[in-house]
């Protein structure tokens, strides 16, 4: 049962990811990206990371993709540069290198030596357990991350004003 579920989600993820890079129009790419991100959230849910799955949906599929959509719509890019950009020599070389790279990655994933699989507690990956570790052990990085976000917001605002 799990296997079938895995194969379904894997197929959706991979095909939508390929679609992201194969689409000619940017808007279609973004739509494919949404599918990919949602399926990754599904994978998180399978993998006992329910909190992460929720965050993935809210943060990625919600916020980040909306940013992309906004950007594309504000630029009205397709009207100015409508023709599809050809990938050229570097794209061919890139295809070669990247395929070899993917091969190596998958090889290493398949053969890696693993530790014994741990038995998981019932609330593994729940908001409570992740929150506990986040606000104790990782408190300082968390605060730093919030500062980073603030800086990014201010920076983005500054850039768009100065333009």
């Amino acid at each position: 049962m799990e296997l079938i579920q895995f194969y379904i989600v894997a197929a959706i993820t991979i095909s939508s990811a390929v679609s992201v890079i194969m689409q000619g129009r940017v808007m279609y790419s973004i739509l494919s990206l949404i599918v990919t991100l949602l399926s990754v959230a599904w994978i998180y849910a399978i993998l006992n990371a329910s909190f992460l799955a929720v965050v993935q949906v809210i943060l990625y599929a919600g916020a980040i993709v909306v940013l992309f959509v906004f950007a594309v719509m504000m630029l009205r890019y397709e009207e100015i540069e409508p023709q599809r950009m050809r990938t050229g020599l570097i794209g061919c070389l890139g295809l070669l290198v990247a395929l070899f790279f993917i091969f190596e990655l998958i090889l290493s994933s398949a053969t890696g030596p693993f530790v014994e699989e741990a038995t998981l507690s019932a609330d593994f990956g729940s908001i409570k357990s992740v929150g506990a570790i986040l606000y104790t052990q990782y408190l300082v990085p968390l605060e730093l991350a919030s500062i980073l976000l603030l800086v990014a917001v201010v920076g983005a605002a500054l850039f768009s004003k100065r333009g």
Binding site: T36, R86, T87, F101
Partner: peptide, 29 residues
């Protein structure tokens, strides 16, 4: 391993796209 291979494939597709596409927005994706 299944999940690792899936993750690697996703990563690799990202790399592939990054090397092949010319549109900056798509590169960010």
């Amino acid at each position: 391993s299944h999940y690792l291979i899936l993750g690697s494939a996703l990563f690799g597709i990202g790399v592939l796209g990054f090397l092949m596409k010319r549109n900056v927005i798509v590169l960010l994706m």
